[in-house]
């Protein structure tokens, strides 16, 4: 009687263990299947979206053609305007598709981590920048994927325009004249290495109120404004261009809006696009 009870107990225990493993195995397979199904569903949705968008583009193109034809019958002037409008739209679309700003293909951006984000987000190709770079370490620090210091990259290839932005990592420097002198040296070196290029000094973009109050690296919006005045004067003295990008990023109190950066300092992709739009407008 006792041995029968033990046998029954072992039987039930074994059955429970078996059920447990069977259920976990089923769950695992189910999860994998779900993953596959999700991935397949995503693929199908993407394909449908692409088809719809291409159909929409085709329809728009057909409509445009029809519109243009109709307009051409009316007046030549109106047709030119329509063509111009659609050409502009098409160009912007191409830029969006490639993910990069094609208008900056012959330009190079030099600067610190803020500038590096332009490359990280895939917006511009030619970027010589690194985290923590300042007007002094630009001669020693390398851009990601290169073993050559940033300033040694210059002159190896001609660029039509050089867009420089420095200052955020130098705000805490005790001497403002040192910053100006070292920045001047960079400009002079670029002039020597790539004499046909146009040089643009960009103003520093403000930081959020929270970041300004935190004053990391002694960087506050007041210091940024001071440095921007120095940069503007330097551009004038050196006979190079100055671009005021800062004004486009200031809220009513002169701070960078909180939603413009992921940490109060470094711009998110949307704001980086705005930054490039501002430059594109001003050059």
């Amino acid at each position: 009687m006792r041995s029968r009870k033990i046998e029954l107990f072992i039987f039930i225990a074994a059955l429970t263990v078996l059920l447990f493993f069977a259920v976990s195995a089923l769950k695992k397979t189910g999860a994998q299947e779900q993953d596959k199904t999700t991935s397949l569903t995503t693929q199908v949705i993407t394909t449908i979206k692409e088809t719809i968008s291409s159909t929409a583009v085709q329809t728009t193109a057909t409509t445009t053609q029809k519109q243009e034809t109709t307009t051409a019958e009316k007046t030549t002037e109106e047709t030119e305007e329509t063509e111009e409008y659609y050409t502009e739209k098409e160009t912007k679309k191409k830029s969006k598709k490639s993910g990069a700003y094609d208008c900056f293909e012959d330009c190079v951006f030099i600067g610190n981590s803020r500038t590096l984000d332009l490359k990280e987000y895939g917006l511009v190709k030619n970027v010589y920048a690194s985290v923590g770079v300042n007007v002094s370490t630009v001669y020693t620090k390398c851009t990601p994927g290169s073993s050559r210091p940033i300033m040694d990259e210059i002159g190896r290839k001609h660029f039509d325009k050089y867009f420089l932005q420095f200052g955020e990592n130098e705000c805490g420097w005790p001497s403002e004249s040192t910053f100006v002198a070292k920045y001047k040296k960079i400009i002079d070196d670029i002039k020597k290495k790539d004499p046909r290029a146009d040089i643009y000094l960009q103003s520093m973009i403000p930081i959020s109120k929270a970041a300004s109050d935190k004053a990391e690296f002694d960087c506050t919006n007041e210091r940024i404004d001071t440095f921007n005045s120095l940069i503007k004067q330097l551009a004038k003295d050196e006979g190079v261009y100055y671009i005021d990008v800062a004004s486009s990023f200031k809220d009513r109190k002169g701070n960078l809006p909180d939603d413009a950066a992921y940490d109060g300092v470094h711009l998110n992709k949307k704001s980086c696009e705005k930054w490039l739009d501002v430059i594109e407008e001003k050059i």
Binding site: A14, F21, A25
Partner: peptide, 19 residues
């Protein structure tokens, strides 16, 4: 019952191996 008791651990081992 004895046979089932012997078979169950074998099944478990096989199941674990396949996982």
């Amino acid at each position: 019952k004895k046979t089932i008791c012997l078979l169950i651990p074998i099944f478990i081992i096989l199941l674990l191996c396949s996982c």
